[in-house]
Design a protein around this nucleic acid. Structure first.
Lengths: 201, 201
DNA sequence: GCTTTAATGTTAACAAAGTTAACATAAGAA
DNA sequence: TTCTTATGTTAACTTTGTTAACATTAAAGC
């Protein structure tokens, strides 16, 4: 007389997985525990997901999508090129700080291999496309020379890696943002820092 | 008649752990497998290390030291301030690319908590001191105003996070360095990229 | 030299996790 | 209604981290 077919196990599992991940990270997410917490047998998740990686992939896809949406929302509202790059970087770090576990999931090594989950690869590519478009969009509509295009691409990489480095080091606790300052402006300050300028600017 | 006391189990374990880590990363390092490969009982490692975290900590400490040495070697040979910062960044990324698993270990979440391993914390702090000194050393010997000192500090953070971001994205395969170019000059290019400069420089 | 003690090994057990196989039941198609 | 498929369940198997109980060796104290 077991409650076979509750109807929505897959979604419930996903939501609970989401909750656990937020609190304890990918390592703390155990399939068995997840199943118990969902009130379903310990093997049930295997009917809906391709094992643990399958669930992680599903969560990662959702995370990538939210990430991309958040970046796009910022990028779309800012017309000025330089300002857009900077604010985008701040938003990038902002997402990492607000959702450190999700950020770690989509960039860390517990992320399932992109090759094995085409939708995951798609979600990842889409997020990076948003970034790249935002960084190079203004230049794209002008007719660029080959070297200009190359520079634009490199600049996107540079902007991306700067934001990424700050994000990683901050959520790792290696860089501690000053308490008396807004996180966004702190990040902007770091992004704009010119390593070659004289100290007494 | 068992071969009790082979004499050097601790070091052999560490070396084998090192080997496994290089090939398979922290996740692939299983204590039991390590013990078997070392030809010792599966509980033996616990006599020499504080469980799995203990071994990871030991390996991480060694990794931090090599990392710091490598950075210091570069920093010490370059007198020019700007050049030193840049080459240091390239060395930072170089280490990550040469030893991705070690880099991941010392920066990822499988690194044992610094609080629980004072020597690990020390090794980490030392590595970052090397970085910070190299980035701010020239300025340090001048008598700086408070704001100059703050700028110097921020600049160190900016340099660090830039290198870190490139390193992370490269070893994650999200940024693929061009095959026709030396990795070092690729990194230097990214580090020097001025996001605000016009495209046709 | 002999005895005691601490260090170092060993085996055996436990719990937790990922995964799969074998079986049960419900829902929908034929 | 019957057959097939999707979805659940239980029970097993393997691996892993860890600890307890016991064995042996080396070193220290007498």
């Amino acid at each position: 007389m077991g409650k076979y077919h509750h109807g929505d196990v897959r979604n419930v599992l996903l939501e609970k997985a989401e909750t656990i991940l937020t609190k304890e990270g990918p390592t703390g997410l155990s399939l068995r525990r997840l199943a118990r917490m969902t009130g379903v047998s310990e093997a049930a998740p295997y009917r809906h997901f391709d094992g643990k990686d399958g669930i992680l992939a599903a969560v990662a896809i959702a995370a990538f999508e939210r990430f991309a949406d958040q970046l796009e929302a910022v990028a779309d509202t800012i017309a000025n090129h330089e300002e857009r790059i900077m604010k985008l970087g701040a938003a990038y770090v902002g997402f990492a700080v607000e959702h450190p576990q999700h950020f770690r999931l989509i960039f860390g090594r517990e992320r399932p291999p992109l090759d094995q989950y085409p939708e995951l690869r798609e979600a990842a590519d889409n997020a990076f496309d948003v970034l790249q478009r935002a960084v190079t969009s203004v230049d794209r509509k002008a007719n660029m020379t080959l070297t200009e295009a190359a520079t634009a691409y490199n600049r996107a990489l540079a902007a991306w890696s700067r934001a990424h480095g700050i994000a990683m080091l901050v959520i790792d606790g290696m860089i501690v943002p000053p308490a008396d300052q807004d996180l966004g402006s702190f990040v902007l300050g770091l992004l704009e820092e010119d390593l070659n300028a004289p100290l007494n600017a």
